[in-house]
Design a binder for these strands. Sequence first.
RNA 1: GCCGAAGUGGUGGAAUUGGUAGACACGCUAGACUUAGGAUCUAGUGCCGCAAGGCGUGGAGGUUCAAAUCCUCUCUUCGGUACCA
Length: 863
Amino acid sequence: MDEKYNPLNIEPKWQENWDDSKIFKVSEDKDKEKYYLLEMFPYPSGKIHIGHVRNYTIGDVIARYKKMQGFNVLHPMGWDAFGMPAENAAIDNNTHPAKWTYENIDFMRSQLKKIGLSYDWDREIATCKPDYYRWEQWLFIKMYEKGMAYRKDSFVNWCETCQTVLANEQVEDGACWRCGKDVEQKKLNQWFFKITDFAEDLLVDLDTLSGWPEKVTTMQRNWIGKSVGATIDFKIDGFNKNISVFTTRPDTIYGATFMCLAPEHPLVTELSAGTDMESDVNSFVKRIAEQDRTTEALESYEKEGVFTGAFCINPLSGKKMKIFAANFALMDYGTGAVMSVPAHDQRDYDFAKKYNLDIQVVVNPFDSELKVEDMTEAFNDEGVIVNSGNFNGLKNKKAIKQITKFLEKEGKGKEKANFRLRDWGISRQRYWGTPIPMIHCESCGIVPEKVENLPVTLPEDAALRDTGGSPLPDIEYFRKATCPVCGREDAKRDTDTMDTFVESSWYPARYCSPDCDTGMFDVDAVKYWMPVDQYIGGVEHAILHLLYSRYFTRVMNVLGLVDFKEPFTNLLTQGMVNKETQKCPEHGFLFPDEIETKGDDKFCSKCGSAVETGPVIKMSKSKKNVIDPSILLDKYGADTTRLFSLFAAPPEKGLEWNDEGVDGSARFLNRVWRFVYKVLDQIKDKEAFNGKPDELKGKYQELNRKINQTIKKVTGDIEDSFHFNTAISAVMELVNMLYSIDVNEETANRDNVLRLAVDNILLLLSPIVPHFAEELWAELGNKNSVSEQTWPSYREDALVSSDMMIVVQINGKLRAKFSIGTDASDDDLKEQALSDANVKKHIEGKDIRKVIVIKKKLVNIVV
RNA sequence: GCCGAAGUGGUGGAAUUGGUAGACACGCUAGACUUAGGAUCUAGUGCCGCAAGGCGUGGAGGUUCAAAUCCUCUCUUCGGUACCA
């Protein structure tokens, strides 16, 4: 055995060993309980960054831990390989997206292998491969046939830089989530998935996800945004038509004094046509349509509107209400029409003040009476109904139900729940994505490609345009198609591709049978492995990816492909790894290795300008605040890097990256190594101690207790909360204790206890630092891989101590401590406490009012 | 604005059925050793104080023999979301 720990020698050896022996390859085994552990697969952007290392290490520890506990563990890895950066990089570097992507995959795979992760690499998938997206196209056609995929004209979020449409979820603060450019509104004909059909189901089932962080279910709940109220019909004066509105406050209907329509609402132009108002209305509608709709801009807009010239009739009060087109009414929420109740809605109040409209109080606070002339803002708390005919005197909450019921009876309204969630627009005008398997035929309309013709393969020889945008419409042989229905040869293939979130919505199921060529997956394999027992990934995917995955699982469920609805039983959202940004006035953002430091000052290595330090934010390639783990891996090896990334903080917590502590982790492994080296000859042929504590004496009895306590603590920390940082601390304490005892002391079972200590330290650490553990495990004379050992258990009798430490407080302040046998009575404790010298000093001349004795813990003397 | 989470030493972080605040590390100080290392070992390290002692978990109150932990108010930071009728 080497005297010194040299990770760079031993790590490649074990990685090869695991690879060759396929020790982590799994298959369905009905006799073993399965455990499916999945980390969110990465986008192959080029290099692994430290956030990946943290994420995959967390997963790897759990996978190895569960394997040692006897589970049949599925732990796969793959690549979320379609997406825009490939196109951008291809243009920048004059290469091809496919080439760029596959090269990145090869490089990143080699990086992951260097971290020593326990993947079943035979299950690796890449979503850009035709044998993967073939089944996505198949599912698209199934969804189309069931009416779950449809086409509609709609205003879409358009990113000019990326030349593509973005889903609502992909717009962050009014800007593109990927490139940061402000998003514009554009009208396009697009494919949509009918996720809103499952809005209620997706919402209700959040309650069943007890293994998810509440934070995430709350975010999804808010995103789905259910509100309960009523739709109410208002007759339009002089027209044989109704305006339907959605409101959550039917109790305030008597106070509705005007009506607001979204500018795009079809009635706006219809009602104003041929009236004096026509030109005003049209110019207003046109102006609003052209307005910038970024969130920032929206905030600065004042509420404004224009009278359409028409009136409607309040169905209960019978009063005439002016109908406006207003900029704050949204066409795609509710019905695109708002019944405005200025007394009880702040927005309506502002609008009424501006245009001098009637304000009518219909809810009073419980203890006072509102007067319109004294009001400075809308009143929207709970209260008592007034000025509302038969409903006066009711609490407004009760009135909501009664008025709704009344409207239903009269045929003027209906109870209704409304959702904020919109259908999922999936068309992208991009090249590097899954082609949408639909064909536009002049005779037959839009029809699906024949299933036997799948996959519709993405042409690999496409020349990208310098300007961005998809080359697919230019490629004649791709675009030209034969109509699968009538056989016309001049049909056109859809040249849009799917949103890349589609691929990631079903990949967990694909891992169960990655080579299946008869369907999306092998039904029996999925039945065995799915759902995922533990999913791990960044909290940044709390809405987007996780909601889409839940939706897709429901789609597969409805299509009879799977028998469950929730894909992820337990979810661990790992905090993001953050780092400050560095900016050079001339060269913009800088990578850490582009900075030179002189004392406390930092300079750009290209031009020497002083570097400006920006805020601490999530690591991203575009901001260049990334840490390349290969520096750590080359210098310290994988095990130290793994250990450090776990020791720094509990997984769910965000982390400001700082590698100052990494030496401590390296030092710890060295300490363990040196100890094993020191006692190796002594313990190599010995059995680990497994007797009763009374077979041991003194320090060695204590050591035995500490070993068992450590097993208990580490197991609990992993099992209950994945708090590896405290688990590691516990092992460190045990190692510190080993250094404090004399290994040559003549005492019973000495070497057997030392063996027990070393065995368990290696077993407990093995999921965290697997190469290190394998090496020392082999040095101890073991033939099998440490990962095939059983996770250690502790002896209950070893935990028991004959003494206990008692704390003495006076008025709650710590004044003394003493050790006493565990069989001591309360009175013994009291007596012992009062006889302590320091205690005597503090109670001298004072009356003892009360003595509180807490069993096995403390004595508090109140004076 | 609304929803959620979090505030503990110089740093990362421990500790919650209320019961020794600061485990384990990093850093720092002093020393030892030496084959001069990114090594190892010993001692110290919350703050104030020579000490006795006092103070101390964002701030202010409260409950309790006892509060980082429970309650009320408040401040700050981070994350999500936002004209949603």
